[in-house]
Amino acid sequence: MPVKVFCYVLLGLALFTLLRYGIFLLSNALAGRLGLIREETGGLGAAVARGVVTAMAADVVALPSILFLALPERAASRTGTPVLMVHGLYHNRTAWLVMARRLRRAGFRNLHTYGYNSFTRDFDHALAGLKDRLDAILGDAPDGGVILIGHSLGGLLCRCAAGDPRFRDRVAALVTLGSPHGGSELAWLGGNRMARGLIPGRDITEAVAEAPDPDCPKLAVYTMADDYVIPLDLLRTGRPGWRERVCAPMGHVWMLYSPEVADMVIDFLRPLRDAGTDEG
């Protein structure tokens, strides 16, 4: 890509970031959540500034990562509980390059990703593909389970798949990162069916609300400076049995690259590994 074109792309992404944070402020103000964000983060201005910077940094990391799609996915180890990672809206399997590296260092090496088309396909198609992938992974270990980790929309796909009677007893742990459990008001700006399905009360949010939770450890991590899931309350699962942890203020996509978020996930999953379900 010519340097001039690349600069225009970055400028467009920067302007879109500022637009999102403008909507973030307006939406959370109308929801009466700016005071809570200010109190919990130590300052609204600093939280938004950090969110803007990390959101832009995520774009800088994500754009060149697309080149890795030309390479085959790294083969997973056949030992330990398989970990299946599911990306969010408009992303791809390269979303997990950094997180996967940190998981391997922590001893989790049976790593898999699931990619789906969120540009021209709908949620049901993505969910059917995820279930097929689970069948394939679990078919190699008929008595074993699987750890599901989903970022953003990927977390909702994981929740719906985990609620399927075929898999509810086979999910060893379920982790969501910045997932719009109640939808997102930013989805009103969505350009396709998949995105608009995240409008609160639409089909994707209804599917998630109807899906039962698996009987396993469940973790939802979110940031109070999320620029895609708006307002704040829509990041909460609203269900018992979930452990919810708030990370430092950062952009929605930066959660994929954050050492803090990776440590939260690893700490949550470590008992599974230490109990011998993932020996790495």
Rank of each mutant, 00 (worst) to 15 (best):
M1H: 06
V3A: 15
V9C: 04
L10S: 11
L10Y: 13
L11R: 09
A14N: 07
A14P: 05
R20I: 03
Y21D: 11
G22K: 04
S27H: 05
A29C: 03
A29V: 01
A31T: 11
A31D: 14
G32M: 09
R33Y: 02
L34H: 02
G35V: 00
I37T: 07
E40L: 12
V48C: 12
G51M: 07
M56P: 02
A57T: 14
D59W: 12
P64G: 12
L67T: 14
L67V: 15
F68I: 06
L69K: 12
P72M: 05
P72Y: 07
A75K: 15
A76Q: 02
S77M: 01
T79L: 11
T81K: 02
T81G: 00
P82F: 02
V83S: 03
G88F: 09
N92M: 02
T94D: 01
W96V: 12
M99N: 03
R101L: 15
L103M: 15
L103E: 08
A106K: 08
G107Q: 05
L111Q: 07
H112K: 05
T113G: 07
T113N: 13
Y116K: 05
N117K: 00
R121T: 00
D122Q: 01
A126G: 07
G129Q: 06
L130Q: 09
D132V: 13
R133A: 15
L134F: 00
I137G: 05
G139R: 05
G139Y: 07
D140L: 14
P142T: 11
H151G: 06
S152R: 03
S152V: 04
L153T: 15
L156H: 03
R159V: 10
G163L: 13
D164K: 08
P165S: 12
D169R: 15
V171T: 01
L174R: 08
T176D: 04
T176I: 04
L177R: 01
G178D: 05
L186K: 02
L186A: 10
L189K: 00
G190M: 07
G191P: 01
L198R: 04
L198S: 11
I199N: 07
I199R: 09
G201K: 04
R202V: 01
D203N: 10
V208M: 09
P214V: 02
P217R: 14
K218C: 13
A220Q: 10
A220T: 13
D226W: 08
V229H: 03
I230Y: 04
I230W: 04
L232F: 08
R236A: 15
G241H: 07
W242G: 05
E244T: 05
C247I: 09
C247M: 06
M250S: 09
G251D: 06
V253H: 10
P259C: 08
V261Q: 06
I266Y: 04
P271G: 05
R273K: 13
R273P: 03
E279R: 15
